[in-house]
Structure formats: structure tokens, C-alpha cells
Amino acid sequence: MTNFAADRETLRALADEGNEKALDRLADLADELGDLDELNELLDEGCERAGRFLTRRAVAAGDLRELQRLHDAGAEEAGDELDRLLEPDD
């Protein structure tokens, strides 16, 4: 990726104008840096990719409450994972 695409300020400006690819790229960067605050902010802005990254982390940690919070915040995948984890073992 070229340098101009990695400029967070530029990505933020594009995302603020409604560019979903820029929003997704911000989520990628936040995930790479382990910046959970940024991922949560991006989820609040409607970024599905941020929700997927946060869901993946919550599943890995076995954090059912976080999965419920993520689902309530609009991350549908978190609800699916929560249901899967709550299913009884047969």
C-alpha cells in the first residue's frame, strides 16, 4: 500500500465524508495496532469490519458479556457467536 493510503488523517477525512473503504482501512489499522478504543469508536460509526475484529477478540477471550455488548451495538456476527457459545454440548 502506498504512503498516502496509510495517512490516518486522510483516511479519517474520507471516512467522515462517508467513504466506507476508508472506514474499513481505519479498522484494519486499529486492529493491527490493537487499539480497542478506536475499534469501538469505529463500530459506533457503523463500521462492520470493526465489529468483526472486536467479535473475533471476544470469542478468543471467551467473553460472553462483550459479545452481547457488541451485538447490542450492531455487530450481528457477535450475536451469532454468542448463540453458538451458549449452545449446549451434545
Score class of each variant (00 low, 15 high):
Q68K: 12
G34P: 14
A22G: 01
E81V: 05
D28H: 01
P88W: 05
E17P: 05
D63E: 13
R49F: 07
D83V: 13
N40I: 01
T10H: 02
A50G: 08
D80G: 08
L26P: 02
G51H: 07
G62Y: 09
A58C: 02
L43I: 10
E17F: 06
D80K: 11
V59M: 07
G62W: 11
D7E: 04
R57L: 15
E45Y: 03
A27E: 04
H71A: 15
L82V: 14
R25S: 11
A30D: 07
M1I: 10
G18A: 06
R56H: 07
D28T: 08
D35R: 05
D80F: 07
R57Q: 13
E17S: 14
L64E: 14
L23G: 04
L23I: 04
D24P: 00
L86N: 14
A58E: 04
D83G: 09
R49Q: 13
L26A: 02
E81D: 11
T55V: 02
A58P: 01
F53P: 00
E45R: 14
L67G: 11
A15E: 03
A15I: 07
D83F: 10
E87G: 01
T10D: 05
L85K: 02
G46M: 11
L23T: 06
E41D: 14
E48D: 14
G62Q: 10
A58I: 08
A15R: 00
R25A: 13
R52G: 12
D72C: 04
T55C: 15
R84M: 04
D35G: 10
D44Q: 10
E76D: 15
R56C: 04
C47T: 08
N3L: 14
N19F: 06
L67V: 12
L86E: 15
L64T: 12
R8H: 06
D28M: 02
D37H: 09
E87P: 00
R12L: 15
A60K: 06
K21D: 15
D37S: 12
E66K: 14
A73S: 15
R8I: 15
E48W: 03
E66P: 00
E81S: 09
L39I: 03
N3F: 08
R12E: 15
L54D: 11
R84Y: 00
G74S: 12
L85F: 02
L43M: 09
L85E: 05
E48R: 11
D24N: 15
T10A: 12
D35L: 08
V59E: 06
R52F: 11
C47Q: 02
E87W: 03
M1L: 12
A73D: 14
E38D: 12
D7Q: 04
E32N: 03
D90A: 07
D31G: 01
G74E: 11
H71I: 05
L29G: 10
D16V: 07
A22W: 01
L36P: 00
D83S: 11
E81Y: 09
A50L: 12
G74W: 03
N19V: 13
A27M: 06
A5M: 10
H71F: 14
G51V: 00
A13M: 05
D28V: 05
M1E: 04
G62F: 12
A13F: 05
L36A: 13
C47A: 04
R49G: 00
D63Y: 08
L70R: 04
